[in-house]
Design a protein around this nucleic acid. Structure first.
Length: 782
DNA sequence: TAAACTGAGGTTTTT
DNA sequence: CCTCAGTTTA
């Protein structure tokens, strides 16, 4: 093995070879931060530190996986698998799982994602007869989340005068009550939300000194990545864990702090030296990533912020090209420009698709780029947005698994108790809820004895059957792994069958997704675990893992040759040869929410700094005069950040006034005509990959096919001479036209004289449909 | 009971 | 513009 320390510059080497004592590394963008961190861990291992005694916390699973991989590469062995390395949330979830009973939770507690949390809040708000227009679940969730991130439980929240005032002033004086009920309900359900993973971890360590001592001694060395993005809860936990050995190493860059909306506070990095007296501070200021032009712009921009640690980021790289400023008329033109530019760059400079990233402020901006890339057959992939696990059919299936692992989970239970329909109706469920509340039992407990809830006959029998089935799954879980349980669930609940029988386009996609889920579970159970402890493949562990997975973490196949689309937040820590920073307009970037507060605005500027420093060679900055928002055209001024780029580093030849013959604008009309006549190409092998669909070719091709069909559904235009025919005349075998579904063939007829139902196969309109002839208008085609 | 219709509301950013 | 929840509808 070569000498890994030789590859570092002086400062990097000093940081990487530091052994005992607190250390803060202030690492500018592109200064080799990850390299230092991984080298340091490798070095510690080389020096004889046991991997089991090292804790490394990151913000994304991806970052954790990458670090692990790089450490293994340096070491040339697989010792890295024993490191405790992962996101704050996943590492704490693991510890909480092991210690759950100490704080009254089942060890297979459920993790609620924000959708789960919000829907629970919604029911609580309704239970309290409050107006959910005022008490918006989203808003309440935000308040609760902020409280937890500041380590404030319901009791403290209710006692806090200034918070009470705030809530009163906003017209929501009962927020604290809702928080208390929400917390109680989560506890009863055996569930923790994302913030609880931090909050409960803190509680665990505070209330159980023995547990604290155990982990303090276990983790002799603690390393924290992206320290500028830690919040109060994370800060306190780290502080406690590192208190004995004080071998704490934090890496961060105040200029890249962009998560204050999640409770992150830049204070943590600023006060590190006060927290740990005699802490060593090393600055990494040489940038290895970007050209001089890009870096100059970045430095100038960030220099406009008031709050910051002084740094002087420099590089030995080439001067490089100037930034290109692009102005277009509309958001669609912006999309077209970018796709064209990518095409041109590929042809002229032999770039690959994967060398390009399109980075935007909000997820909703992706649409125009998707369309334009698709039109040019440029493969792309969107990171973020709706994840696979947020799809309805997946949530349904997972709800079964959740109930099996944790029958206390009332939310999941309510979701599946009558899906697929099994004759447990609304009234029965309401009864059970009332009894559960009265007797202070869980929903599941009441289900055991339906007759005590006043249910009898068919309803009680249906419940008995359901309970029996779920119990058999639970028994299965004791001996079988996650996949085997899931397989049985799919088989016995008719879930899969139901979707299989649904031959509509959407049904087909849903069926595919569930198959995909089963495959994923199988893959999970078959992959050898990397963690040191808790290496079980049980359902409980599986469920906790997937809830913490983000879309960006999946398919970490870096080498997929696709253009990448994501938010700037999601791009942090990544780099790309060519970057398009798009949508540089007031109200978008900076966001409309941040225009009236200095700190918020500075955070937006840091975000601008982040996007600039993602680029290695080339950077485009674009904005549109007007764009569609909620269906109507809105005009935005160019972003103030555009003016902050020094003109000498910027090429404005694409930013001519409207009407100038810049590429994008001149092409405007003809491109629109193309759009109208555009039909998807037949051979869509590996063209574009939508998020969550899993990047498999088959799925992709299928999605393309589905979209094609969908397009036809939406575009079917009724014949000019369309007149509804008399249902009496219709019989099986006839061809008929439907105004929306197009032409189809009647497969069979059912129903009585006045209630005739035709089963019709629409080849282009979404497969088989049952249509009641008394209501639908159909025309017989001769 | 399920499909079809209606209106409202939604866009920061993420574990 | 699009999605979702809630309501209508025969």
């Amino acid at each position: 093995m070569h000498d890994y320390l030789k590859e570092l510059n002086d400062n990097q080497r000093e940081a990487a070879s530091h052994m005992e004592g607190p250390l803060m590394i202030v690492a500018g963008a592109g200064s080799g931060k990850t390299k230092v961190l991984t080298t340091r861990i490798a070095h510690l291992l080389k020096q004889g530190v046991d991997a089991f005694n090292i804790l490394a916390l990151t913000f994304t699973n991806k970052a954790a996986a990458e670090m692990k991989e790089r450490i293994e590469k340096i070491l040339g062995n697989s010792e890295a698998r024993n490191l405790y390395i992962g996101t704050f949330h996943s590492v704490f979830a693991r510890i909480l799982r092991a210690e759950a009973h100490k704080i009254g939770y089942p060890n297979s507690f459920t993790i609620y994602d924000s959708d789960d949390a919000k829907s629970l809040l919604k029911t609580i708000i309704k239970d309290n007869n409050l107006d959910d227009k005022l008490y918006k679940p989203q808003y309440i969730y935000g308040r609760i989340s902020a409280a937890k991130n500041n380590l404030m439980g319901p009791i403290e929240y209710l006692q806090d005068k200034s918070i009470a005032q705030e809530d009163a002033r906003s017209g929501r004086p009962l927020t604290g009550q809702l928080y208390a009920q929400y917390a109680a309900r989560c506890f009863k359900n055996g569930a923790m939300d994302f913030d609880d993973l931090l909050f409960k971890m803190y509680e665990l360590l505070v209330k159980h000194p023995d547990v604290l001592a155990k982990y303090q001694h276990k983790f002799r060395f603690v390393l924290i990545d992206e320290y500028q993005d830690t919040n109060i809860a994370q800060y306190q936990i780290i502080k406690m864990l590192a208190a004995v050995h004080e071998n704490i190493c934090v890496v961060g860059d105040d200029a890249q702090s962009i998560y204050s909306f999640r409770g992150a506070t830049i204070e943590n990095i600023l006060k590190f030296q006060k927290d740990y007296e005699g802490a060593k501070v090393i600055k990494l200021e040489q940038n290895y990533r970007s050209t001089q032009n890009i870096l100059n712009v970045a430095n100038k921009v960030i220099g406009l912020n008031k709050n910051q640690i002084q740094k002087n980021l420099w590089t030995q790289n080439d001067t490089g090209e100037k930034l290109k400023l692009v102005r277009t008329l509309t958001d669609n033109d912006e999309g077209r420009f970018v796709a064209d530019a990518i095409m041109e760059q590929k042809l002229r400079y032999h770039y690959n698709n994967k060398d390009f990233a399109i980075l935007y402020r909000t997820n909703a901006q992706s649409r125009s780029f998707e369309e334009s890339l698709r039109r040019l057959n440029i493969p792309y992939r969107i990171f973020g947005g709706l994840s696979f696990y947020q799809r309805k059919e997946i949530k349904d299936f997972i709800a079964y698994l959740r109930v099996i692992a944790n029958p206390q989970d009332e939310e999941a239970l309510k979701r599946i108790i009558n899906y697929p329909v099994r004759g447990i109706g609304k009234t029965s469920i309401e009864r059970i809820i009332i009894i559960a509340n009265e007797t202070d039992k869980t929903f599941w407990e009441v289900l055991q004895t339906p007759h005590l809830a006043g249910l009898k006959g068919a309803a009680a029998a249906a419940i008995d059957n359901f309970v029996l089935m779920m119990k058999s799954f639970q028994a299965l879980m004791k001996t079988k792994d996650a996949y085997e349980v899931a397989f049985e669930v799919g088989k016995h609940t008719n879930l899969v069958k139901e979707l299989y029988n649904d031959k509509s386009v959407e049904g087909l996609a849903r069926y595919e997704n569930v198959q995909e889920l089963l495959n994923a579970i199988k893959e999970y159970t078959e992959t050898p675990d990397e963690e040191g402890e808790l290496t079980d493949k049980s359902l409980g562990t599986y469920l906790q893992n997937i809830t913490l997975l983000t879309d960006a973490d999946k398919d970490g196949d870096e080498n997929q040759d696709v253009v990448k689309l994501m938010t700037i937040h999601a791009a942090k820590g990544l780099e790309f040869p060519c970057v398009f920073a798009v949508g540089l307009e007031e109200n978008i970037f900076p966001s409309a929410m941040s225009l009236y507060d200095r700190d918020d605005l500075e955070e937006e500027r840091r975000l601008f700094y982040v996007v600039i420093t993602r680029a290695k060679h080339k950077l485009w900055i674009s904005f549109a005069n007007s764009r569609y928002r909620f269906g109507s055209l809105v005009q935005n001024e160019p972003s103030r950040f555009v003016d902050e780029v020094p003109p000498e580093y910027m090429d404005k030849s694409f930013a001519g006034l409207a009407g100038a013959r810049t590429g994008a604008i001149a092409r405007n009309t003809s491109a629109q005509q193309q759009q109208r006549s555009f039909t998807p190409k037949e051979k869509t092998e590996k063209v574009y990959v939508r998020p969550g669909s899993k990047a498999e070719e088959t799925t992709t091709a299928r999605e393309a096919a589905i979209q094609k069909v969908k397009a036809q559904v939406n575009t079917h235009i009724p014949s000019a001479n369309f007149t509804a025919s008399d249902p009496e005349d219709m019989e099986a075998g006839m061809k008929v036209e439907h105004q929306k579904f197009g032409i189809g063939t009647i497969m069979k007829m059912d129903g009585g004289a006045h209630n005739r139902i035709a089963t019709i196969q629409f080849p282009n309109g979404g497969g088989e449909k049952k249509i009641m002839l008394a209501y639908a208008k159909l025309m017989i085609i001769k």
